[in-house]
């Protein structure tokens, strides 16, 4: 037994329900390590089906899963890894209409998305429902991660200063493996209540130079999600 976890910590993991938004590059390591750690319920949301081009990084899925819904493929993989974990699957888009239902009764929200607009939707839902939000994003050999505790720490939207154009992000599989593992570590620590969280700082990873950099992040008083411009 890991002393930082102990039996009490393992019980906390078992009782937890975590929303993972996305069953792709980030969602794969996140789900695998949360299931392996014994997180009781993983609620997984993804609208897509598995494509051959996904397989360089989306290790929840294999060649035999091509054209299957990702959430079904993921459920099979995770259940084979740990059949004591409940995998709730939702093959749907995350929208303003669906978000409240998706986060209901969850203890944490994990960002495994591939676009910024839905990330902001999750960020806002996390603040509205006062749930911890574990951000991660990747591109190429790079990635970033930050943990957000609503009411206490800066949120993802604090950093917003203009729209980001939609584009495809080429990714080598090891980048989401690194970032997703960091996100999973944060979720596990949060659920158990141990360690220092990656709050108030953005961790930026560059696989090409093999460097991690940390930048201090402050609450933005003008943030329209958690600051004085908050939309009620």
């Amino acid at each position: 037994m890991i002393p930082e976890i102990g039996e009490a910590g393992q019980e906390k993991l078992k009782k937890a329900k975590v929303l993972v938004a996305g069953a792709g590059g980030l969602g794969s390591p996140i789900c695998i390590y949360l299931a392996a750690a014994g997180v009781g319920t993983i609620r997984l949301v993804d609208q897509d089906t598995v494509d051959l081009s996904n397989l360089n990084r989306q290790v929840l899925h294999g060649q035999g899963d091509i054209q299957r819904p990702k959430v079904q493929s993921a459920r099979d993989r995770l259940t084979s890894l740990n059949d004591t974990v409940t995998i709730e699957i939702h093959q749907q888009t995350i929208s303003e209409e669906s978000i409240d239902g998706l986060v209901e009764s969850c203890d944490a929200i994990v960002d495994a998305l591939d676009n910024i607009s839905t990330r902001y939707m999750l960020n806002k839902a996390a603040i509205t429902h006062q749930l911890p939000f574990f951000h991660g994003a990747v591109r190429g050999f790079e990635g970033r991660a930050m943990t957000i505790i609503p009411g206490r720490t800066p949120c993802l939207r604090c950093m917003y200063h203009g729209d980001v154009p939609k584009e495809k992000f080429p990714v080598i599989g090891v980048a989401p493996a690194v970032i997703g593992s960091i996100q999973s570590t944060e979720v596990i620590k949060y659920l158990i209540g141990t360690g220092d969280l990656l709050t108030d700082r953005m961790l930026i990873y560059d696989g090409m130079s093999m460097e991690f950099k940390e930048f201090k992040v402050s609450k933005n008083p003008q943030c329209d999600h958690c600051g004085e411009k908050m939309e009620k």
Binding site: G24, G25, D111, N115, R139, E142, V164, F169, V171, F215
Partner: peptide, 10 residues
């Protein structure tokens, strides 16, 4: 001053 490129992939 550090210029950082925004990442949004997953």
């Amino acid at each position: 001053i550090q210029l950082v490129y925004f990442l949004a992939g997953g």
